[in-house]
Simulated assay, not measured.
Amino acid sequence: MKSFVVKTIANAVALGVATWLLSDIELTGTSTGRKVLTLILVALVFGVVNFLVKPVVKLLSFPLFVLTLGLFTLVVNALMLLLTSWLAGRLDLSFHVDGFWTAVLGGLIISIVSWAVNMAMPDDKD
């Protein structure tokens, strides 16, 4: 359970950094508390998308992973971010990614920041 919370917080921080760095990833809200709550909810949606959809996409596109020596991961991460943006719109969350190339760069930023935050935060796997 603690691992789930740590990963959700790491994703929320990573999504926040991506919205801060890229103007085409929008997070609107009236107050800081509202924005933080939206980031946490979007991080939950992002986690569910990565848990349910990403393995299927990776399995179906395995030949492309081999052919590109793993660089196709950037495309898959971008697609997961775009799917999260679409689902956030359907759930009335104020989070939007505008365009594929923004999603590619955002996916790269989210991957790096999420990895760094996961390394810095304690995780009880003992």
Rank of each mutant, 00 (worst) to 15 (best):
53 V>C: 04
34 R>Q: 13
18 A>H: 04
58 K>M: 10
30 T>I: 10
4 F>K: 09
38 T>N: 01
122 P>R: 13
89 G>N: 15
78 A>R: 01
61 S>E: 05
36 V>R: 00
59 L>S: 01
114 S>K: 14
89 G>W: 15
117 V>A: 12
93 L>W: 02
37 L>K: 05
123 D>N: 14
106 G>K: 05
92 D>W: 02
74 L>S: 05
109 I>P: 04
7 K>A: 14
102 T>L: 04
76 V>A: 10
11 N>S: 13
80 M>T: 05
21 L>N: 00
30 T>K: 06
90 R>A: 12
100 F>M: 10
53 V>T: 01
35 K>S: 03
25 I>H: 07
19 T>D: 02
109 I>Y: 02
32 T>V: 09
80 M>W: 02
98 D>Y: 12
59 L>K: 01
125 K>R: 12
13 V>N: 07
2 K>H: 13
80 M>G: 10
123 D>R: 14
78 A>N: 01
57 V>G: 01
109 I>C: 04
82 L>V: 13
69 L>F: 09
71 L>D: 13
80 M>K: 07
104 V>P: 05
31 S>A: 11
77 N>G: 12
86 W>R: 07
99 G>K: 00
5 V>Y: 14
106 G>T: 05
20 W>N: 00
91 L>A: 15
73 T>Y: 15
33 G>T: 03
101 W>A: 10
32 T>W: 03
40 I>D: 00
121 M>A: 14
104 V>H: 04
90 R>C: 05
70 G>H: 11
66 V>P: 10
53 V>I: 12
47 G>E: 13
79 L>W: 11
40 I>R: 08
38 T>V: 02
69 L>C: 09
75 V>G: 06
13 V>C: 08
76 V>D: 09
86 W>C: 08
89 G>C: 15
35 K>L: 03
92 D>E: 07
29 G>D: 00
16 G>D: 00
54 K>Q: 08
119 M>Y: 15
18 A>Q: 07
113 V>W: 11
27 L>Y: 01
59 L>A: 02
30 T>P: 05
29 G>A: 00
13 V>F: 14
106 G>C: 08
43 A>S: 09
44 L>W: 11
73 T>P: 12
5 V>W: 14
55 P>Q: 01
39 L>H: 00
57 V>Q: 02
106 G>D: 10
76 V>H: 07
77 N>H: 07
29 G>P: 00
84 T>E: 12
32 T>N: 05
35 K>A: 05
105 L>I: 08
92 D>Q: 09
58 K>P: 02
95 F>L: 05
66 V>C: 10
78 A>Y: 07
